[in-house]
Each structure stands twice: as C-alpha cells, then as structure tokens.
C-alpha cells in the first residue's frame, strides 16, 4: 500500500466541500465525543452492571443536583482549597525551581529531595496529615501543596538549566547584564516547561484533594461521591465524578489561556 502524502490529501479536501467538513478537526472532536457517550449509553442500557448507569440517567441526575444546589455547594468546598493550594505551590515552587536552576549550591541542597518526592507515592502521607490536623481547609491546602510542589519545582529547575545556550550567548554578546539575560531570555525561554510543570502540579494537586475528601470525613465532591455510592444512588455518583473530570479539563484550559496571554505572543498571533 502506498501512503498518501499529506499535501495531496489536503488538496483533495480543498476540491470537495463535503470532505472538507468531514476531515475538519471539530468534526472529529464531535464524532469522538458522540462515540464515547454513545458507548456509555449502550453499556448503561444493556446494562453491563447494576451499578453502571447510562449516560442519560447520569446526565439527568447531574441536572437534578445542579438544580437543587448540592452540586455547587460541594464544588465550592473542593475548589477553594485546590485554588489556594495551587496558587501557593505555583508561587513558591516556581521561585524555588528558578533559584535552584541559577544557583549550584541551592541545587545541591534541594534537587535530590524533590526528585525523591516526585518518584514517591506522596499520597501515603495523607493519612498522617489527617491524623495530625483533622479535615479542615488547612489540611486540604497542605495536601494539595505536597502533591503539587515536586513537579512544579523540578520542571522550573529543568527549564532554567536547559535554557538554550545560543540565546544566552547572544544576550551576553550584546552586553546584557546577568539580570537582563535572566529576565529577557532565560525566563521567557523557560516558560513553556515551567507551565508544563504547573499542569502536572495541578493534576496531582487535584488527585490529592479528591483523595483527601474520599479518605477523610467526607466533604465536598468527595462526599457526593461516597455518599451516593453508599446509598447505591449510582447515577448521582457518576454525575459527581463526571463533573470532577470536566472541572479538571476547565482548569487545564484556563492554565493554558494564562500561559498564552502572558508569555507566548507568537502563539497568540497565529
């Protein structure tokens, strides 16, 4: 079989409007979502298990929870510690990572600890924290920070350390001061990797806060999940989980928006 080169495929699409619509990215997105939701509906109706509701049941349950206000109340309880924790981790973690990337001594002291932390299942610390500090806001914020910081620190560190040599040399050859080279070259060049670290950190922070809510005396979205699981109200349980996943997508999207508006004018121009 001979593969069709991309260019000829593109020109074929240009000549045929139907094909152009069919091969458009949005079409595939919609198709992809419909396929998965359709499979979910089918599996729920068969049903594959008594505890597996169909998509339409789940959607209705979600609607009901949204209407009676239980969903938004639970969301607030989950989101507040998450946002506080992520903001704190982002500020402290990025600063620490950048500092270690610029200073060999700080690197020697700090980096191994964070490497160990990143590889380790830090979630295991959560029972300890709960034991010591209860289930308040402070504990949840601490959990988010512990989970999020290693990835943020290590990515910021790597980003600074791997700043493109030729750009740094360029800055030096045009007599940039150390501060100018850091501020105008190293940091902007490092920003994509730093933001990748923030995304990883956000993901683990999210994992942490939900885990804390599932393990500990139930609050927030975690409570919605465990409570409806315990009374076998599966559509509502599934709806709560779907909302959590949706929420994480929105958070990731927001982070990307922030990155592009702040640091990536070349992407905005496209």
């Amino acid at each position: 079989m001979i593969s069709v080169p991309t260019s000829s495929r593109a020109s074929a699409a240009r000549t045929n409007p139907l094909r152009r619509v069919m091969t458009h990215t949005i079409t595939f997105r919609i198709l992809s979502v419909i396929t998965v939701l359709g499979a979910w509906e089918y599996a729920g109706r068969r049903p594959i298990s008594a505890s597996f509701p169909s998509f339409s049941e789940t959607f209705a349950a979600g609607w009901e929870m949204a209407a009676d206000g239980s969903l938004s109340a639970a969301l607030m309880i989950t989101i507040v510690p998450l946002v506080i924790g992520i903001t704190m981790s982002a500020i402290a973690g990025v600063a620490a990572g950048i500092y270690m990337g610029l200073d060999r001594r700080a690197e020697w002291v700090g980096v191994p600890v964070f490497i160990v932390m990143q590889a380790a299942p830090l979630a295991a610390l959560i029972p300890l924290l709960v034991l010591a500090y209860g289930v308040g806001l402070a504990t949840k914020v601490t959990v988010v920070c512990i989970m999020a910081v290693p990835a943020i620190v290590l990515n910021s560190f790597k980003a600074i350390r791997h700043a493109p040599v030729s750009l740094v040399e360029m800055g030096e050859s045009f007599l940039g001061s150390r501060e100018q080279v850091i501020g105008k070259i190293i940091l902007p060049a490092a920003s994509p990797v730093i933001f990748a670290g923030l995304r990883l950190g956000l993901a683990s922070g999210f994992i942490g806060v939900i885990l804390a809510e599932l393990l500990i005396s139930p609050t927030g979205i975690g409570d919605l999940i465990t409570y409806h699981q315990s009374i076998a109200e599966y559509p509502k349980m599934f709806a709560a989980i779907a909302v959590v996943i949706l929420l994480s997508v929105l958070f990731m999207e927001a982070l990307e928006r922030i990155e592009i508006t702040l640091f990536r004018p070349e992407k905005r121009a496209q």
Partner: peptide
C-alpha cells in the same frame, strides 16, 4: 483525532475520583 482528546483529558484528570466507580 478520535482518541487524543480523551487521552489528554485522562492524563491530567483527578483519577482518584474514578476509583469509586471501579470499586462499585
């Protein structure tokens, strides 16, 4: 195109929330 959006969602989703489903 069909799979990537989902993989991207789950690679950074709070997967802990899905464990109760597996348990159920």
């Amino acid at each position: 195109r069909l799979l990537l959006p989902w993989v991207n969602v789950f690679v950074s989703a709070p997967l802990t929330a899905l464990v109760p489903i597996i348990m159920a």
